[in-house]
Design a protein around this nucleic acid. Structure first.
Length: 283
DNA sequence: TAGGCCATCTGGTCCT
DNA sequence: AGGACCAGATGGCCTA
């Protein structure tokens, strides 16, 4: 298995379950945050739905009137309005000069009218749903990458493990994680796994599936450099919850869209802590 | 209080 | 025409 394929496989292994992460697994941190999000969303959705329902009941002509009446309520913010006016003036000026140069023959491209209030509301609702899906994926990604606790001593205070990874930190950490696993796979004999023969693809996957066997060490803290962020990577074996890779056993991956060759993703063991990972992460 | 992070709204663009 | 996607603007919340 060449390196590009390995990277792709690893990316699939990491990312595939994220795209279809069971919602019932989204708990803890996410659920702690959920009430806030849901409250806002539900409020907005309710508002949107009410508006939508209201709009459905009103004939088109009357809807236009209602829209006009609500124009002020849903108008752009003052600064947006000001900026839009300025922009439109610039565009008009440019098009005027352009017409002069072209002899006044070409007409400027017709600007589409702004969306109706109903369509604006539905568009907003779709956008909220879209963003929520993205956030769910982010939460899955947070869970997929090894648990990272922002250390007090490392990041200069702050609440410890309850601290939620930011989106950008999550992405950077995931990239590191994938890269580290890729390097693990590319190594000739990363760890001696009883009952496996190093070198073959099956053994590579078995290597992952084995959870790195008994090679876990007493690695206490692994410093991750995620661009600007420094993160302590906890792998205290007495507390496996601090570093428990996700169980991907229920997910299958699809290699390069080839539906003829699917593979059950490895079941990560209770820990990934190895000297090799230590070295890779700290490098 | 400033800055970071985030959710939401909004308009533009592209695609079906 | 309508939906998906994107980026900018804005305001709220939280922390140092």
């Amino acid at each position: 298995m060449n390196s590009s394929v390995q990277s792709s496989v690893l990316s699939n292994i990491i990312m595939s379950p994220l795209m279809s992460f069971p919602s019932n697994l989204l708990s803890g941190q996410f659920l702690a945050q959920a009430p806030h999000c849901l409250t806002q969303h539900d409020k907005a959705t309710t508002d949107s739905n009410n508006n939508n329902d209201h709009a459905k009941d009103i004939p088109v002509e009357e809807q236009v009137l209602v829209d006009t009446q609500k124009e002020e309520k849903y108008s752009l913010r003052p600064r947006s309005t000001q900026k839009r006016i300025q922009t439109e003036e610039i565009i008009r000026a440019v098009s005027r000069s352009s017409r002069k140069r072209n002899g006044g023959g070409s007409r400027p491209k017709q600007k589409p009218p702004p969306l109706s209030k109903y369509r604006r509301k539905t568009a907003n609702a779709r956008e909220r749903d879209r963003m929520r899906e993205i956030n769910v994926a982010f939460e899955s990604l947070r869970r997929a990458v090894p648990h990272v606790a922002l250390s007090d001593s490392c990041i200069g205070g702050g609440s410890p493990s309850s601290e939620k990874l930011t989106k950008i930190t999550t992405l950077r950490l995931a990239m590191k994680y994938i890269s580290a696993l890729s390097q693990c796979l590319q190594q000739e004999s990363p760890v001696t796994i009883p009952g496996t023969s190093a070198g073959s693809a099956s053994s590579d996957l078995g290597y992952l599936a084995s959870g790195y066997g008994d090679a876990a060490t007493d690695l206490d803290a692994l410093l991750l450099e995620s661009d600007d962020d420094s993160l302590y990577f906890r792998s205290d074996l007495s507390d496996t919850s601090s570093f428990t890779p996700p169980d991907f056993s229920e997910h299958s991956i699809d290699f390069h869209g080839d539906h003829h060759s699917t593979l059950t993703t490895p079941v990560f063991g209770h820990t990934l802590a190895t000297p090799e990972l230590d070295q890779i992460f700290s490098s």
